[in-house]
Write a protein that binds this DNA or RNA. Structure first.
Length: 428
RNA sequence: CGGGGUAUGGCGCAGUCUGGUAGCGCACUCGCUUUGGGAGCGAGUGGUCGUAAGUUCGAAUCUUACUACCCCGACCA
């Protein structure tokens, strides 16, 4: 991709209504634009990151044996009445009528639709366990959307639902999802905690949240300073107790003391048990030919929220510092004087072609701007590796390789071939 | 929904107190010169000042109502 061709409107100044760093940087780096409160358009650069995270999630879900489906965003009232949630849900459930005055809602979650699907099509315990997932836009009319895509009303989510013949099998599916979530977040290179949680309004038995640790996180969690233990502070507080009073107390798991941290909830896994299947008559025949209520689990990951969370954890005063695996491009070639100096332009294009053919995702900054402008933009959008071709190339045959993280800067390299050698090594 | 705040060109802002018909920086367009840390000179484009009503000879500015957006809180599979 050539910089002069990509739709990438970067901003020098941070828009006034962006408070947290990830929101500011996503706007400044030309990743998103707001349409209305809590609702955003993803621009090419942001979409690249979103898709990368989506694909990592998809790969790990597929590897776990789950199967992808795609359910509708618009759902009929009747299904929601079966679980009594048409009444129970508040205004966060966006309702509307079609031309025949039938009631519908925009799906904030899909227990009803998936349970309906399974009860109509799965009849035997032999077809279980079954784990179906989708990656889809959800809509929740949040009381107060905030922090850009971190808490939007419309957002991209991976939600999956497991169907099991009994509690033990459900537990197995649950643990498999827990492992899968760990793999996903570890691949994304994010620091996280698994937090014991209240299973909340959705009901059910076991429930754990996955939190990416970040200063601007909306949730407060209590972590042990010397073990993996973490728990939602709500579960520890007594009547009228202050969150800060927990700091320094002995950890409930008996190891170390409590440390209060801020987290962004990017995943939540539940053992629903029989609640939904019971309400919706989702049964299968067991090996004795008896009808059994299906045990369900549900597992969510906020894909769009992960984009913001990754930025919250990886930035400096200059901009975003993408973990390589989700960077919108892997290499940025900064050609100074691209439109003027044919030798530089040719070298830049050669490197671009070669790296592209080696399988790298490359962007070439071919704009007629000075070094400063290009470097500032490069730092803002946070591409891991920058190759800088300028006067030193025409004069001394030298090219600079600069890592965005500033910790592994390569410096001047004495010819183009050496660069390809470097990238071959990188690849292995 | 309670509390606080904002609304002037794509972005950041001044002008509002003290009414006189809109300005600055950046961005954008054209030309020339530039190109290793957000370039320079010259010439341009772009705004019913959130909406509506009112006061006034005259409203971005004063009054009233409304709307949108942001922050804090309550809420959140």
């Amino acid at each position: 991709m050539f910089w002069s061709k990509i739709f990438l409107p970067t901003l020098k100044d941070s828009p006034q209504d962006a408070e947290v760093i990830s929101h500011q940087l996503m706007l400044r780096a030309g990743m998103i634009r707001k349409v209305t409160s809590g609702i955003y358009t993803w621009l090419p650069l942001g979409l690249r990151v979103l898709k990368k995270i989506e694909n990592i999630v998809r790969e790990e879900m597929d590897a776990s044996g789950a199967q992808e489906v795609l359910m509708p965003m618009v759902q009929p009232r009747e299904l929601w009445e079966e679980t009594k949630r048409w009444e129970k849900m508040g205004p966060e459930l966006l309702r509307f009528q079609d031309r025949h005055d039938r009631d519908f809602c925009l799906g904030p979650t899909h227990e009803e639709v998936i349970t309906d699907l399974v009860r109509n099509n799965v009849k035997s315990y032999k077809e279980l366990p079954l784990n179906l997932y989708q990656i889809q836009t959800k809509f929740r009319d949040e009381i107060r959307p905030r922090y850009g895509v971190m808490r939007g009303r419309e957002f991209l989510m991976k939600d999956s639902y497991s169907f099991n013949i009994d509690k033990d099998s459900l537990n197995e599916s649950y643990l498999l999802m827990k492992e899968t979530y760990k793999k996903i977040i570890e691949r994304l290179g994010l620091e996280y905690k698994i937090v014991k949680a209240d299973s909340g309004a959705i009901g059910g038995d076991a429930s754990e949240e996955f939190h990416v640790l970040a200063e601007n996180g909306e949730d407060t969690i209590a972590v042990s300073d010397s073990s993996e233990f973490a728990i939602n502070t709500e579960l520890l507080l007594g009547e009228g107790e202050d969150i800060n009073s927990l700091q320094g107390k002995p950890s409930p798991d008996g190891t170390g003391t409590i440390e209060i941290r801020k987290g962004i909830e990017i995943g939540h896994i539940f053992q629903l048990g029989e609640i939904y299947a019971d309400a919706m008559n989702a049964n299968v025949l067991d090996h004795e030919g008896k009808s059994q209520t299906i045990f369900m689990g549900c597992y969510g990951i906020g894909i769009s929220r992960l984009v913001a969370a990754a930025i919250e954890q990886n930035n400096d005063d200059k901009g975003i510092i993408w973990p390589e695996i989700i960077a919108p491009f892997e290499v940025n070639i900064i050609a100074i004087g691209f439109g003027k100096d044919k030798m530089i332009a040719q070298a830049a294009i050669d490197i671009y072609d070669k790296l592209s053919s080696m399988g790298y995702e490359v962007i070439l900054d071919d704009r007629n701007d000075g070094f400063g402008t290009k470097m500032k933009d490069a730092e803002l959008i946070g591409i891991p590796i920058n190759i800088i071709i300028g006067k030193q190339y025409t004069e001394k045959n030298e090219i600079e390789l600069r890592h965005r993280d500033g910790q592994s800067s390569i410096g001047m390299i004495d010819d183009i071939e050496t660069i390809f050698e470097y990238f071959k090594k990188e690849n292995n």
